[in-house]
Simulated scan of single mutants.
Amino acid sequence: MKKKILTTILLSLIIGISVYFYTYQDHRDIDTETADYVVTVSGLEKDFTSNDSLAYIKYQDKTIELTAQVTTIDTANRGIVLGEKIFATFKDSLPKEIVAGKTLKIKGRFLGYDELLQEFKIDQSSIVR
């Protein structure tokens, strides 16, 4: 009887510790990651137009790098629109070198495609120098 109780307690403890470490693992640091894909705005559009299911599998939650012209600046949401199709948000505040009309190379985590606004969403963006 004592052996069963001890085994149950030990097994519960192991499961609890495993769940804790799985739940509270370190967050990704996109700035230090290398880009999984280097893409263009037209390349993303082409991939999603031809087969959006495969494109989601390919890009979802991956680090991408792209170069495009800044078309809109949204200081309230710490974001910018690139090439009129990519909405990229930054972690903290917008870098000072962002100016409308300037071409930037950014890296960030691809979130998906917003069909309502017809924009691709990227977060945790940073400027690649």
Score class of each variant (00 low, 15 high):
residue 63 T to N: 04
residue 11 L to A: 15
residue 75 T to V: 15
residue 84 E to S: 12
residue 18 S to C: 14
residue 122 I to N: 02
residue 69 Q to M: 12
residue 107 K to E: 02
residue 91 K to W: 05
residue 52 D to Q: 07
residue 86 I to R: 05
residue 86 I to K: 02
residue 94 L to D: 08
residue 48 F to I: 03
residue 25 Q to V: 04
residue 78 R to L: 10
residue 115 E to A: 08
residue 50 S to N: 04
residue 35 A to S: 03
residue 63 T to K: 01
residue 12 S to I: 14
residue 64 I to Q: 04
residue 56 Y to W: 14
residue 76 A to G: 08
residue 55 A to L: 02
residue 46 K to Q: 09
residue 82 L to C: 10
residue 93 S to V: 07
residue 27 H to V: 15
residue 91 K to D: 02
residue 128 V to H: 03
residue 21 F to E: 11
residue 115 E to F: 09
residue 115 E to V: 11
residue 74 D to P: 11
residue 108 G to P: 10
residue 7 T to C: 10
residue 34 T to I: 05
residue 39 V to Q: 00
residue 90 F to V: 01
residue 129 R to Q: 12
residue 55 A to V: 02
residue 127 I to R: 01
residue 104 L to D: 00
residue 111 L to P: 10
residue 98 I to A: 01
residue 95 P to H: 04
residue 29 D to I: 14
residue 54 L to S: 13
residue 64 I to S: 02
residue 1 M to C: 02
residue 50 S to Y: 10
residue 74 D to Q: 14
residue 55 A to H: 04
residue 89 T to A: 03
residue 106 I to A: 00
residue 88 A to D: 14
residue 117 L to N: 14
residue 49 T to G: 01
residue 54 L to G: 06
residue 37 Y to C: 03
residue 66 L to V: 06
residue 110 F to M: 05
residue 16 G to C: 02
residue 111 L to I: 08
residue 2 K to H: 11
residue 85 K to G: 10
residue 94 L to M: 11
residue 71 T to R: 15
residue 18 S to I: 09
residue 3 K to D: 08
residue 36 D to A: 03
residue 108 G to Q: 01
residue 50 S to D: 12
residue 38 V to T: 08
residue 57 I to V: 08
residue 95 P to V: 02
residue 21 F to W: 04
residue 17 I to Y: 09
residue 53 S to N: 11
residue 89 T to K: 07
residue 75 T to W: 07
residue 128 V to G: 05
residue 81 V to H: 13
residue 99 V to C: 06
residue 21 F to T: 07
residue 26 D to A: 13
residue 113 Y to F: 14
residue 76 A to S: 08
residue 9 I to V: 14
residue 53 S to Q: 15
residue 56 Y to K: 04
residue 65 E to V: 00
residue 125 S to L: 04
residue 34 T to P: 01
residue 126 S to R: 01
residue 112 G to L: 13
residue 121 K to F: 11
residue 80 I to C: 08
residue 93 S to A: 06
residue 75 T to C: 10
residue 125 S to D: 05
residue 90 F to A: 00
residue 3 K to V: 05
residue 127 I to F: 02
residue 17 I to R: 07
residue 19 V to C: 08
residue 51 N to Q: 01
residue 74 D to L: 11
residue 42 S to P: 00
residue 124 Q to K: 02
residue 10 L to N: 11
residue 26 D to K: 13
residue 7 T to W: 03
residue 98 I to N: 12
residue 53 S to W: 12
residue 77 N to E: 05
residue 93 S to I: 13
residue 87 F to H: 14
residue 129 R to Y: 00
residue 118 Q to D: 15
residue 95 P to N: 05
residue 127 I to K: 01
residue 38 V to Y: 06
residue 108 G to W: 01
residue 100 A to C: 04
residue 74 D to H: 14
residue 48 F to A: 05
residue 12 S to H: 07
residue 27 H to M: 06
residue 10 L to M: 08
residue 90 F to Y: 11
residue 71 T to K: 15
residue 86 I to V: 13
residue 41 V to K: 15
residue 129 R to H: 03
residue 123 D to N: 13
residue 92 D to T: 06
residue 88 A to K: 06
residue 81 V to Q: 08
residue 35 A to L: 03
residue 76 A to T: 13
residue 100 A to E: 08
residue 74 D to T: 10
residue 100 A to T: 13
residue 74 D to R: 10
residue 91 K to N: 00
residue 28 R to M: 11
residue 101 G to A: 03
residue 16 G to D: 10
residue 90 F to K: 00
residue 67 T to R: 06
residue 51 N to E: 09
residue 22 Y to T: 11
residue 40 T to I: 13
residue 67 T to L: 05
residue 121 K to E: 13
residue 10 L to I: 11
residue 111 L to F: 06
residue 62 K to C: 07
